[in-house]
Nucleic acid binder design. Structure first.
Lengths: 232, 232
DNA sequence: TCAAAAGTGTTAACCATACACCCATGC
DNA sequence: GCATGGGTGTATGGTTAACACTTTTGA
């Protein structure tokens, strides 16, 4: 492999991408973190991500990094924003463009990558110390979800395709950080036709089994455009 | 001045900042554009902006560029996001981090900068052709305002400190692109105490003079946190 | 006296809120 | 039969939506 250098007339920062991967794991909203194997922040937990290739788009870079690091290639990415404090990376000036995505656990086969970096899901309300300014990035992502949840239906592409309404409700509660009224929440979902009941039930505990529902995609999109607040 | 080069082991993109400056001009929501004096896109209209200094924060870079280019140093900046299509700039790979800000015309003394680049306000619904992907950036900013206006009170720091309610209403209408009911709009603003009436009137046309109002900052902040939709 | 923009109130339908009890199951 | 989470209905008050006419001014 040829050794090469890149020369510029003016100093250039490095550009990286990072991604907050949300998933529903053990009935909670969690994010996927990687334990760093190198300095800086060796052994700390960090968002999956890496440096931008000079010819690839920002989204391609995220998809490539996630494929490599968590063996999952997301279809949809949503930009959180750019994080560029001059000292956010001790090595050199690095601007990170952060994204978030949803991972339906049923669709993913997560394996630690070939480098055997450790991967783990963490409940959003119980995160470990994070490398770099990754906590700031996660918090920015959560703020976006908090706003989203108050303006549009939420959960499609994140929850399993068949789910209990109480699971959807608890994801909402994880995001907004306060309890919702069960009766009102269900009434609204059904009234606007956002979910349709199935004749299937989930028996995961020694209690009454819960009915499963699917999103009604047509109405989901309709109210995504029109706007709806399921949190009240 | 010493000639110097900057050498990296991996290729680095350039990083720029651009800013959509919103102002209320001739009773409309307008943005400030600069006519480019150099290639590429010579003579096209473009957002004010420029390259990031290697040691300055993203926001500092925007403030510096706006000071230089439009003689106005904004206090608050809001990030739109990063725009990084590989071919968005024909010169080299450039990632642009875009911001928007509000400029109260009463507080600014805009002069074309020393380089005598032409500055002009353009109504958001009647923009000229823009350089680079700046139309995409402006549209992203407008989408943010469209969402904002449906979730929080809007206009503080943008409108003159004393204004007619019909001016505020028409700014809302510029953003959402549809007419609002005058009675309902005013009723809501007053009911929630978002504005307070003054004993001053504006006579700018040969008709009945309009009462001026100020924002009630305390309630404005309160409903910004709590959320309110003045568009319905 | 006309044209133009400012300003004002009421009603009916809908929606949000708050709240408590029964159901189905496995142990 | 009990513990646990699943599931349901109603009444009240507040919010939205729709609507048309009078006022003030300068020309």
């Amino acid at each position: 492999m040829k050794k090469q250098y890149y020369i510029y007339k003016y100093p250039h920062p490095a550009v990286a991408v990072d991604c907050v991967v949300f998933g529903v794991v053990s009935s909670c909203l969690e994010i996927l973190l990687i334990q760093r194997r190198n300095e800086p922040y060796k052994d700390s937990w960090a968002l999956p991500g890496g440096f931008l290739g000079i010819d690839e788009s920002l989204e391609e870079a995220v998809k490539r990094e996630l494929s490599e690091e968590i063996n999952y290639r997301p279809e949809y990415l949503y930009q959180i924003g750019a994080f560029g404090d001059p000292d956010r990376d001790p090595r050199e000036r690095v601007i990170s463009i952060a994204y978030y995505t949803f991972l339906q656990i049923e669709k993913a086969c997560l394996v630690a990558n070939s480098d055997a970096a450790k991967l783990e899901w963490f409940y959003i309300r119980n995160l470990p110390n994070l490398a770099f300014d990754h906590l700031k990035i996660v918090n920015a992502a959560l703020e976006i979800l908090q706003k989203k949840v108050k303006c549009e239906p939420f959960g499609y592409g994140l929850l399993p395709s068949k789910f209990r309404l109480s699971l959807l409700q608890s994801i909402y509660e994880d995001i907004i950080g306060e309890p919702l009224d069960k009766r009102n929440f269900r009434k609204k979902l059904l009234k606007y036709g956002l979910v349709k009941p199935l004749n299937e039930f989930e028996k995961i505990h020694p209690h009454r089994p819960a009915r499963l529902y699917e999103f009604n995609y047509e109405n989901y999109i309709k109210y995504k455009e029109k706007g709806i607040d399921l949190t009240r």
